[in-house]
């Protein structure tokens, strides 16, 4: 019975974090010039690039909506994103599902009624996956939207939280994600204090769920603060460059 110990008795996780700590956050605004806005977001070793196109004329006629913008989303994992290099088919089940979840979440955050008869397209490319890449992807997409200057109801910050060794653990990495415990993904409007996305594929007890949820919300708030600081710093930089 050689079970993995995800939290040592000294209270440290496998990578040296404490249970309530996020991985290191890094964000670069406008890393690429193509598109109308882009952002590169890292949480530890999970690294995602998001590029926003639009608002622009819809590529297909059918996508046009009279009263608001159409949001579309591409989500793909690059073939070198995991330890094992694997050719990934576009549109595999996981990516499609992730794209759908991300699209719905972003659609509700964007003030789409301000951009009628247009399309906003968001490309999300996972460059390195070390757990929680979907959450990182959402954060990257939000920063890209900010960079593109698209009006949002509020920022959206997303984090994951699991429950292993009878302890809620914030921001699971790849090893912890494979630990067999539940994993809850939560996205929050920090200023409105409103949950926009809550997703889990595991069963967990109600008491546990409450603890996990609380911790995930704390994590989201921290991420939101970081996003805001980054956005403000980027804006200042732009102002300086223009002046």
């Amino acid at each position: 019975m050689n079970r993995m110990e995800f939290l040592s008795p000294e209270g440290l996780r496998l990578d040296g974090r404490r249970p309530r700590e996020l991985r290191q956050l890094r964000c670069k605004m406008a890393p690429v010039d193509s598109g109308d806005g882009s952002a590169f977001f890292e949480m530890g070793n999970s690294k995602v690039l998001a590029v926003v196109y639009g608002p622009r004329e819809p590529a297909q006629r059918g996508q046009l909506q009279q009263d608001r913008a159409t949001v579309t989303c591409d989500y793909s994992m690059s073939s070198f994103s995991t330890g094992e290099r694997r050719k990934r088919m576009k549109g595999d089940r996981r990516s499609t599902e992730a794209a759908l979840v991300l699209r719905q979440t972003l659609e509700s955050a964007i003030l789409t009624e301000l951009y009628p008869r247009t399309q906003i397209h968001i490309c999300i490319q996972v460059l390195q996956a070390d757990g929680g890449q979907q959450a990182v992807g959402l954060n990257a997409a939000v920063m890209a939207l900010v960079e593109a200057g698209i009006a949002l109801r509020d920022l959206v910050a997303c984090s994951t939280c699991g429950y292993l060794d009878a302890t809620p653990l914030l921001d699971l990495n790849y090893t912890e994600d494979g630990g067999g415990g539940p994993n809850v993904q939560l996205a929050l409007h920090p200023a409105l204090d409103k949950v926009v996305l809550l997703q889990t594929e595991d069963r967990l007890r109600l008491e546990v769920f409450e603890q996990v949820l609380d911790l995930a919300m704390d994590g989201c708030r921290t991420i939101a603060r970081f996003m805001k600081e980054t956005a403000v710093a980027h804006a200042k930089e732009l102002a300086v460059a223009r002046a």
């Binding site: 496998l14 990578d15 040296g16 700590e21 991985r23 070793n45 390195q128 990495n173 090893t175």
Partner: peptide, 13 residues
Amino acid sequence: GKVLKVVRERYLR
């Protein structure tokens, strides 16, 4: 099975 490159972080405190 195959050779696999594992990248892990270590946070030094």
